[in-house]
């Protein structure tokens, strides 16, 4: 299996995801430059967290037009696995690979803390190693994670079981997102965006001391291994 982590100008969690894939999971992992037009031979593409282009217009809005996004959109349409974490999720929304949009957190402040989440759907390439309805913990760190989608869109997400992760309840929802949504996938299940950072909780040594993020990556690896490395359509 081969994974690629994209570096946009202003990405700052690219090295963190790289570290987890490469050093914790021993996956063949490469950094992908945002100007690359060619991405061949990957089983997984990760759009990492950070502040691409300073997030100056809207989070992810400018990165969406980086050269590398065309082949990534193509890769996703062919069934390749794409994981967008935090700013990566915002880029996936801006590029319409996932539905909805992001607003600033309802308390207007950047928030960095551990959150409790519920796994809503564990029948996906990204959560197959998680227990359904399990409460898991992952940290968030963002200023614009207030997910929004209109009524019909929400209905559709629910009907297609596209909501994968929710903050456990309104009280622990760190940003005011609609229906406590923390992570969603596309209808085809191969593109997953989430605000929490699984790469920050894949080793028990580092704070916050939990390792529930590990299961997200092991789900992906297990899915790809089962699929036999080929992109399925």
């Amino acid at each position: 299996m081969k994974a690629g982590v994209v570096t946009f100008p202003g990405s700052n969690c690219d090295a963190d995801v790289f570290h987890v894939l490469k050093n914790i999971f021993n996956i063949d992992t490469k950094m992908i430059w945002y100007k690359d037009k060619n991405i061949k031979g990957y089983d997984l593409i990760v759009l990492p967290g950070g502040f691409s282009y300073g997030d100056y217009l809207r989070s992810g809005a400018i990165a969406r037009f980086a050269k590398v996004m065309d082949p990534i959109i193509d890769f996703a349409e062919k069934g390749g696995l794409v994981l967008g974490i935090c700013n990566g999720f915002q880029i996936l929304l801006e590029s319409n690979l996932l539905p909805g949009a992001m607003k600033v957190n309802d308390n207007l402040k950047f928030v960095c803390k551990n959150t409790v989440l519920t796994v809503i759907n564990n029948k996906t390439p990204f959560t197959n190693q998680c227990e359904k309805s399990a409460a898991i913990e992952m940290p968030v760190a963002h200023g614009e994670g207030n997910y929004y989608i209109d009524k019909e869109g929400l209905k559709e997400l629910n009907e297609n079981n596209q909501i994968i992760l929710k903050y456990k309840n309104k009280k622990v929802n760190p940003n005011g997102s609609i229906n406590n949504i923390a992570g969603i996938c596309n209808k085809e299940r191969n593109v997953f965006g989430l605000m929490p950072h699984p790469e920050r909780c894949s080793e028990p040594l580092i704070t916050p001391g939990k390792s529930d993020g590990y299961n997200i990556f092991s789900s992906i690896i297990s899915f790809i291994n089962k699929r036999g490395g080929k992109i399925a359509k």
Partner: peptide, 8 residues
């Protein structure tokens, strides 16, 4: 295309 997000 860029300056406004038509979703919101």
């Amino acid at each position: 295309k860029l300056l406004a997000n038509p979703v919101i």
